[in-house]
Design a protein around this nucleic acid. Structure first.
Lengths: 236, 236
DNA sequence: TTGCTCCTCACGTCACGTGAGGTGGC
DNA sequence: TTGCTCCTCACGTCACGTGAGGTGGC
């Protein structure tokens, strides 16, 4: 039997046979006079045995053709139970992401808020992206307890928050000062209600500052003023 | 934010960040005066976005952080349906192998036969291995129709075949000629019944010969004589 | 001479892990 | 001076795929 015979009969590539030689799963056969490998039927049986286990997903390193392998099969079976569960969890997550109308990486607690914001007039998509970024960072930083509390904001509260954010993001740079002030007042009122949720962030000062800067960076000059005034009101 | 900050906050290794730089998923940030990378919160958001998709099993090559990826998610979902089915098929196959008392690579059609042979007295395990080898080769070579017919041999026929094989394999090299003859007669009778099953083998002459030699190689001198005489009887 | 089959390197794949050896600030 | 953190190569992983370049028999 030559390389191609064994390969064809066993349903593998010639390269696969070479690989099995390299890792010692299959002994090198004698050579015929022209240097071609001369396999025996015993080699073919061995390859078939290896493939039967490899096709079940057993790693080549754990295949020993000389030994019965029931224990290894039991291990594999438990591994498959785990994998099936994981795949099903992924499918559930994918389904949830596809259902939602917002971008797939929007944190769950902020979905309604971002959706509401997205539907306001006068807000272009770029600032919405900035809000999404902020939500992603928030999700990361909040301990799970706080995140849960954020989720239970009711529809009215979410709508109000979206109103306020939309007003902030719609502020033009040439907005008159009284308009900036009005936004700051509304913003302070909304933030006051949310403050207990954000308070105990597990952050070093440098990191907190870096994240804060990121939010400021996304805002225009007038918008920064409004946010700044709102924060001053809060600290009073 | 330094490498370790981003890595810790995003739940990845520093090496992973380097890898994302290499493949262009994450831009190289500016360096601070000491040469350390100075990441921004935007980089962190980006890593989180990549990980969210990568954790769902999306290949990095198909992740584009700038684009929404609902279509890709649909593809992934279909892929998972397929994978779950495959894993369940493997579990079924593993379960069947673990149920049986014979070695895991014994072909289904020969299980009862090998089991019966294994339980005969006077047959050591090495010739049983040879019979298993022959069965493996047979399974490979028979078209599925014939293999199905082999499976439906009834209990009595299997027991008779096992009796005859056991008698052949138990033949000592110094067995008297009449004993060899008796085995040959019984063997011929059993083979005559099986012959319709084996007849149309899709083999080149060289390969058939190679497989036949393999069977002969496993037999002792007296056993070969018995097989040879049985085959002569058949061809009459 | 032209195909065909076999041969031997040897690099590529995928998403990083894991040292190896060196530097800068406390 | 001693740790600690960062840096840059660069090889290893897993099971082969895929040329690259050469040889032998019809």
């Amino acid at each position: 039997l030559r390389s191609s015979d064994v390969a064809r009969l066993a349903g593998v590539s010639v390269r696969t046979l070479r690989h099995y030689h390299q890792i010692g799963l299959l002994p090198e056969p004698d050579r015929s006079s022209n240097g071609y490998r001369a396999y025996t039927a015993a080699d073919l049986v061995r390859v078939l045995r290896v493939r039967r286990l490899a096709d079940l997903g057993m790693p080549l390193s754990r295949i020993d053709p000389a030994v019965d392998t029931k224990d290894e099969l039991a291990l594999l079976d438990r591994e498959y139970v785990r994998q099936i569960e994981e795949l099903q969890q992924r499918r559930t997550a994918i389904e949830a992401l596809r259902q939602s109308t917002v971008r797939v990486d929007t944190p769950a607690f902020a979905r309604k808020y971002i959706t509401a914001l997205d539907q306001r007039d006068g807000v272009t998509s770029q600032p919405v992206e900035a809000e999404r970024d902020a939500a992603v960072l928030l999700e990361l930083l909040l301990d799970s307890g706080s995140a849960a509390r954020l989720t239970v904001l009711n529809e009215g509260e979410i709508a109000e928050l979206a109103d306020v954010s939309a007003a902030l993001l719609a502020l033009a740079d040439d907005a008159p000062d009284p308009e900036i002030d009005a936004v700051a007042v509304a913003l302070a009122s909304a933030l006051r209600r949310l403050r207990p949720v954000f308070s105990p962030l597990p952050l070093t000062r440098e990191i907190a500052q870096s994240l804060e800067e990121h939010v400021y960076d996304q805002l225009s000059s007038a918008q920064r003023h409004a946010l700044h005034r709102a924060l001053r009101r809060l600290s009073r």
